[in-house]
Design a protein around this nucleic acid. Sequence first.
RNA 1: GGGGAGAUUCCAGAGUGGCCAAAUGGGGCAGACUGUAAAUCUGUUGCGAAAGCUUCGGAGGUUCGAAUCCUUCUCUCCCCA
Length: 428
Amino acid sequence: MSDFIDTITWRGMLHDMTPGLTEHLKSGMRTAYLGFDPTADSLHIGHLVGVMTLVHFQRAGHKPLALVGGATGMIGDPSFKSAERNLLDMDTLSYNVAGIKKQLSEFLDFSDTLSNRAEIVNNYDWMAGFTFLDFIRDVGKHITVNYMMAKDSVRKRIEDGSGMSFTEFSYQLIQGYDFYHLWKHKGVTIQLGGSDQWGNIVTGTELIRRMEGGTAYALTVPLITKADGTKFGKTESGSVWLDPVKTSPYAFYQFWLNVSDEDAEKYIKIFTTLPKEEIESLVDEHRNAAHLRILQKVLAREVTTLVHGSSEFTSALKASEILFGKSSADDLRSLDERTFLQVFEGVPGSEVSRLSIDQPVDPAVFLADIAKAYPSRGEARRMLQQGAVMINKEKWPLERFITKDQILNGKFMLIQKGKKNYFLVKFV
RNA sequence: GGGGAGAUUCCAGAGUGGCCAAAUGGGGCAGACUGUAAAUCUGUUGCGAAAGCUUCGGAGGUUCGAAUCCUUCUCUCCCCA
């Protein structure tokens, strides 16, 4: 049994914890849980820190529980949110819960033979039948309003005058009760969470202490940041999702590959399970030859494989090589249709009638009006003028007309908008 | 309920009758450089090939001419009760 606290400390994943936790973990197999809010039907990489915390916890020989908030999701965690949250309806919620459950099951080991096998629980199961009267009698009685109001997350909202509904105010108590319930029935003694969850988690340990005199622990992981101060896990096109339909494995791979040097050192510790020695030697190697981007490559490989599997990783890698390598128009032509489609899966594109370029057509008109790669002809023309457009890997001048010869494999045309943005036209 | 300020292009914010498709900054996009980076420098950033067209909260009006003046509506903010 390796030391969980040492591991996550070294990995930079420890933000705060309640006293005594180190000893508590050393004395035997423990059970911890971490909650996920079902606000969408897929997790995104912001959730991955939490997932990895559970993974490391299990690898250290302890038992991880993932809680999907079917009940708490109905309320919405107000912690550090500036405004009242919108409520989700039941259908959306149960759909989201199912999606998240499925994803979580990819990361943890659920084998029956394991004594520390992972489990997934849904707080709807025990909250749904709990009546309001029972709740305020049996749970609410133990925690004072003063205590709840003192939480940073609540106080901020009151101080800045935006206020908070009773519904959201109750959230911490419900999350606290989850902890109590799992402590009582599942032997859970630790709750893990993001640093914004500290207040909610501590309400739980407090509740356990007051209701039964029990001891429970809290451990939080830091908010993942980026060296340049922008928000982690977002690209121009929005969140980076774990669901391959929402974010293609190719885009996912690219996200990690494009991480800055500074962040790569941090992320490889957090998002991979590679051992310390290996990571340290990679970091050394990277520092000696930063331009090779060894860390980014390993990081992208590891995370993509973990989330999407090795065959998806291989296609993403291959796609990247074709898109960014020194490949030429001839390389593109040599691809058969299946590989071509695989490489460009997830790349935005449009469908266009073959007839539209029966006659040679002005490239700006084609790019804007026909292929819809640009919103207006003016913009397309500007880009062409600036030399920002490549068609089938060839830099395209403003004066050169598009003809049927530009169709690859009788079906496709690859447009590059600048260096990094690809656009695939399918001819039908 | 009373009084005041305001609503401008992606954002912030200038413009207070023609020189305004609208300063400046940010952001975005692109080029050079590079490591598919960072930093930097350069270009570009309503539509249109152009003539021109549509934009300054909505509607109406004054004027040869309005983002700018008038009327009215909607919304936002501040102060007093």
